[in-house]
């Protein structure tokens, strides 16, 4: 598995296929970040694509390849907030009364968990989403993010604990 650093280096040489590898690696994470703000999967799709396009265009401004995940999520969050503001202006009554599932909206449980994820420190969030959204092993996460296995293990453990505490809080 190629590391983020390798894929970023290739992408900077205009290897768009390599950038596609980064998209595949992080798309679920970005999707979850965007959905957590918009609350609507359908609406998220365009924003997710736009996020990756923007990331590609601004890739030279990324100073450290190991920060790619958090950096990407900042772009995603900014794009999602912009879209959220835009949608609020045009939301119709018909949309408001549509069935949540049909409208691509999320269950309460999922919304709570997404909120918890949003409260995590960036690196912990990246680690736990790569682990469970992309099904990467601890070793693979360490490899792609350029961190040690020990660091990733700690990040995952802390993230799980924080999420547990958050969910307990919300269930009170």
């Amino acid at each position: 598995m190629r590391s983020d650093k390798e894929l970023i280096a290739a992408s900077l040489e205009q290897d768009r296929v390599a950038f596609g590898g980064l998209v595949r690696r992080y798309e679920k994470m970005v999707f979850a970040t965007v959905v957590s703000i918009l609350g609507d999967r359908h609406a998220a799709e365009d924003v997710v694509q736009d996020t990756f396009i923007a990331a590609y265009e601004h890739l030279p401004s990324l100073r450290r390849s190991e920060a790619f995940g958090p950096w990407l999520m900042q772009i995603a969050r900014r794009n999602a907030l912009r879209e959220s503001r835009r949608r609020k202006r045009f939301r119709s009554l018909a949309e408001d009364v549509a069935a949540p599932v049909a409208n691509g909206q999320l269950s309460e449980v999922s919304r709570d968990l997404l909120k918890g994820l949003n409260r995590l420190p960036e690196h912990e969030r990246v680690a736990i989403m790569l682990r469970y959204f992309e099904n990467l092993s601890v070793e693979s996460i360490a490899s792609v993010t350029g961190r040690t296995v020990g660091t990733v293990t700690k990040q995952l453990s802390r993230a799980r604990t924080r999420l547990l505490n958050w969910l307990k809080e919300t269930q009170k």
Binding site: E27, K28, F31, A32, V35, R41, L106, S107, V109, S110, L113, L114, I128, R131, Y132, F133, L167
Partner: peptide, 10 residues
């Protein structure tokens, strides 16, 4: 829960 969330959301 995380895995279910990924299935539901993504």
């Amino acid at each position: 829960r995380m895995q279910r969330l990924a299935d539901e959301v993504c």
